[in-house]
Amino acid sequence: MSHRITVAQSAPHTRLELRHAVRAEQAGDDIGAGMRQLYELAGRIGLVPTGPPSTTYHGEFGPGHTTEADFGLPVTAGPIDGTTEQITVRRTEPTRFAYVTHHGGYEHIGTAYRDLYDWIGASNLYACGPPTEVYLVAPDEAVHPNDLITEIRLPVVTRPDLAIRLPATLPKAATLVRNTLTDKGFTVLTEVDARATFQAGPGTAMQDCRILGAYNAELAHRALELDPRAGLLLSFNIVLRADGETTIIEAVDPLRLVDTEDQAALAAIARDAKSRLVSVIEAVAESSRPTD
Rank of each mutant, 00 (worst) to 15 (best):
D161R: 08
R90V: 12
E60D: 11
G46R: 01
Y126N: 12
T76L: 14
A142Q: 04
V100M: 01
V157D: 14
T169C: 05
I152L: 15
G59S: 00
G46V: 03
H58G: 02
A98P: 10
V137H: 04
T95N: 07
F97Y: 15
Y126G: 08
P49C: 11
R153M: 05
Y117I: 02
G121L: 04
P79H: 12
E85S: 09
R153A: 03
E141W: 01
I152Q: 06
L116C: 02
I109F: 05
L125C: 08
Y135F: 13
G104C: 03
H108T: 15
D140I: 05
F97A: 04
I152G: 12
G104E: 01
L116I: 00
D81K: 08
I120E: 11
I109K: 09
G82N: 09
P145W: 00
Y99T: 09
R90W: 10
E151M: 09
V100A: 06
A98R: 09
L116Y: 00
I120L: 13
H144S: 09
T84N: 12
W119C: 01
L136D: 14
A168H: 11
D147W: 08
T111W: 06
Y99V: 03
I87E: 04
T66C: 11
G129Y: 06
T111H: 12
I109M: 11
T76E: 15
H58K: 00
P160T: 07
P79G: 12
E93D: 14
P52R: 12
I45S: 00
S123C: 02
V137R: 04
T92K: 03
V157R: 12
L166E: 07
E60K: 08
P130N: 14
G105L: 00
L116H: 00
D147Y: 03
G43L: 12
V134K: 09
V89P: 08
G43F: 14
L166R: 05
L166S: 09
E141I: 03
P74A: 07
R165V: 11
H144I: 02
D140W: 13
V48A: 13
V137I: 11
T55V: 15
T84S: 12
D81T: 12
I164L: 15
G43Q: 10
Y99E: 14
Y126F: 15
R90N: 09
E133F: 02
I87V: 15
H144W: 06
P130H: 14
V157Q: 13
P167G: 07
A98E: 03
T55F: 06
V137M: 03
E85W: 00
P155L: 03
V134E: 15
F97H: 13
T67A: 08
H103W: 02
R114G: 06
L116S: 00
L73V: 15
S54K: 04
T150H: 02
